[in-house]
């Protein structure tokens, strides 16, 4: 009998991540690429790359998706489980660190805090609309200062007297930063000031009212940035652990959940196979005229077959089996 491997895909708004796990929950391979606003093409690209990594005596036993585009990704690859990012991150973290009590996660567009006690999620928080506590905040400010995001951390670590920057909102931070620049503060000090602003903002918003206790692990793309790690350690006055594969923890979690699902049900996977990377999917949107809401419905089609529709406020277009094939009374806008 062939061994099983499990696939997890995490499609976020900024990056797309993929992890391949063995039956013994060992990471076999992983990928981390930008989403670039084209999730389908990037998923196909990932699938092409990861297919070559599967050991010859193994086959896919299950697949899971997570991230903000989890439903789309799930539809394309034929996922067995579709899970939200919070659960996926918690599952991955407790696998590697069974005694973890707090997970800090900062991604491109959102940030979360997950409180875990006895390997059970007991509380969580997510950033609201504002992006001030996320990776894109740093990207944006680095761009303003003409520093590449790769140099960001090493430059910031040189800081001796960090500047205090208001971090409530990108707009405030930006005007404050420009002001500090004009006052002649050095770039490393400003950069580290930004890191501290992000951390403060994170603790005061996402982490408000949460009891942040050791052991703390920090995951997500922003954990690449050593300066942020240092700022967290200073702010919380404790040690922060960064897992080796912090950037793909969501995907690892999705893979583990797919495996748990397989172990529990023993069902054959729905996985569509790696051939999907060569299929051309068609996405289009149309405006539903069913009510004054005029929702923009996005649909994913393979040839003539509608695979999925989403984006409506109501359930009208959601269940493919319930609806006629062509959207009646709707204007297809391409």
């Amino acid at each position: 009998m062939q061994k099983k491997v499990f696939l997890g895909i995490d499609v976020g708004s900024v990056t797309t991540k993929c992890a391949l796990m063995s039956e013994d929950i060992e990471l076999i391979a992983h990928r981390y690429i930008p989403t670039s606003g084209k999730p389908i093409i990037q998923i196909q690209k990932l699938m092409r790359e990861i297919s070559s990594e599967i050991p010859s005596d193994c086959e896919i036993g299950g697949a899971g998706t997570t991230g903000s585009a989890r439903y789309l990704a799930g539809e394309i690859i034929g996922a067995d489980v579709i899970k939200n990012e919070i659960t996926a991150h918690a599952v991955a973290a407790t696998h590697f660190y069974p005694d973890v009590r707090t997970i800090l996660e900062i991604g491109g567009q959102d940030s979360k805090i997950i409180i875990i006690r006895d390997a059970v999620v007991t509380d969580f928080g997510m950033n609201t609309v504002c992006a001030a506590g996320t990776g894109s905040f740093l990207d944006h400010q680095a761009l303003r200062l003409g520093i590449s995001i790769n140099e960001f951390a090493s430059e910031a670590m040189k800081s001796k007297n960090p500047v205090r920057i208001a971090g409530r909102c990108t707009v405030f931070a930006e005007s404050d930063m420009i002001h500090k620049q004009q006052m002649g503060h050095s770039t490393p000090d400003i950069l580290y000031g930004l890191c501290q602003a992000l951390v403060r903002n994170y603790i005061n918003n996402v982490g408000l009212g949460k009891s942040i206790e050791k052991p703390i692990i920090f995951q997500g793309g922003v954990a690449f940035n050593q300066a942020i790690v240092r700022a967290f350690e200073e702010e919380l006055a404790t040690e922060i652990m960064v897992p080796e594969h912090h950037e793909v923890m969501g995907a690892i979690g999705a893979a583990i959940i797919a495996m748990e699902n397989y172990n529990a049900t023993g069902k054959k996977t729905h996985f569509n196979g790696f051939s999907i990377s060569d299929i051309s999917y068609e996405t289009s949107t149309f405006t539903c005229n069913g009510c004054p809401n005029q929702c923009e419905i996005a649909q994913l089609k393979l040839g003539e077959k509608v695979l999925a529709r989403w984006g409506g406020r109501c359930e009208k277009w959601e269940y493919i089996s319930n609806i006629s094939e062509s959207p009646e009374g709707a204007v297809v806008t391409g």
């Binding site: 208001a166 409530r168 909102c169 405030f172 005007s175 404050d176 002001h179």
Partner: peptide
């Protein structure tokens, strides 16, 4: 005014 209002503004 709010807690981060800049004096200069």
């Amino acid at each position: 005014v709010e807690e981060h209002t800049a004096e200069a503004g």
